[in-house]
């Protein structure tokens, strides 16, 4: 399982870094790295960072996952964590890979007029995939809210369902015209955060 995680991360990071190297001379000195809700770039970074930060993060993800797994002493929870993190890692790495591709294309002057559609679609898909496996996730060692194992199991199931629903809604928000789509996407993310926090409080009292 650990090997598979590294293979996916290594292949994605290598492909992303090679793409950056190939187009490195054509990239502007200051690369657009973030976009406002109106599709205008609102944050720029030096091209070394823009070209190689995301490939580095792709490699960092499995390293962090392995470290987190080693901190878990309960072998049963470690196995469950490994199974869930296999899915979440692959989804996050593919998400970063797609973001890297779009950033490179935009900064190379390609016409990515639909990049406001890109964010809700890829983040929506990622939320669907991650939310689907959340009910299987063991309780983290770092406990922000005190929940018994049974309360946590119910909370994880509730959060998983909310995350999948939010993923579908975010995906659908890409179909709405410009401003309305952005407002809907922000509202969906805010509702998901509120539901997760509210759920933790609710299940801690049950």
């Amino acid at each position: 399982m650990t090997g598979k995680r590294w293979i996916v991360a290594g292949a994605a990071a290598l492909a992303a870094a090679v793409a950056s190297l190939i187009f490195y001379n054509e990239l502007p000195e200051r690369m657009a790295a973030h976009f406002s809700l109106t599709d205008q770039p609102d944050r720029y970074v030096h091209k070394v960072i823009g070209a190689f930060l995301l490939p580095a993060v792709m490699l960092l993800l499995p390293a962090l996952t392995n470290l987190n797994m080693r901190l878990e002493r309960d072998p049963s929870k470690r196995t469950r964590f490994a199974n869930v993190s296999e899915t979440t890692n692959i989804v996050l790495i593919l998400l970063l890979f797609a973001v890297h591709g779009v950033l490179l294309a935009y900064n190379l002057g390609r016409d990515i007029a639909a990049h406001s559609r890109f964010a809700p679609v890829v983040i929506g898909l990622a939320l669907i995939a991650i939310g689907n496996v959340l009910p299987r996730a063991p309780r983290a060692r770092l406990k922000l809210i005190r929940l018994s194992d049974e309360q946590y199991a119910r909370y994880a199931r509730f959060t998983g369902r909310c995350t999948v629903a939010a993923g579908f809604l975010l995906f659908l928000s890409a179909l709405l015209p410009g401003g309305a789509g952005a407002v809907a996407a922000v509202a969906v993310v805010a509702a998901l955060v509120l539901a997760s926090l509210g759920g933790a409080v609710y299940f801690s009292r049950k």
Binding site: G131, N132, L134, P135, R136, A153, R157, G160, R161, V164
Partner: peptide, 10 residues
């Protein structure tokens, strides 16, 4: 025994 279903399996 404990439940281990995903959201789609539910």
């Amino acid at each position: 025994y404990a439940l281990n279903t995903t959201v789609f399996q539910d």
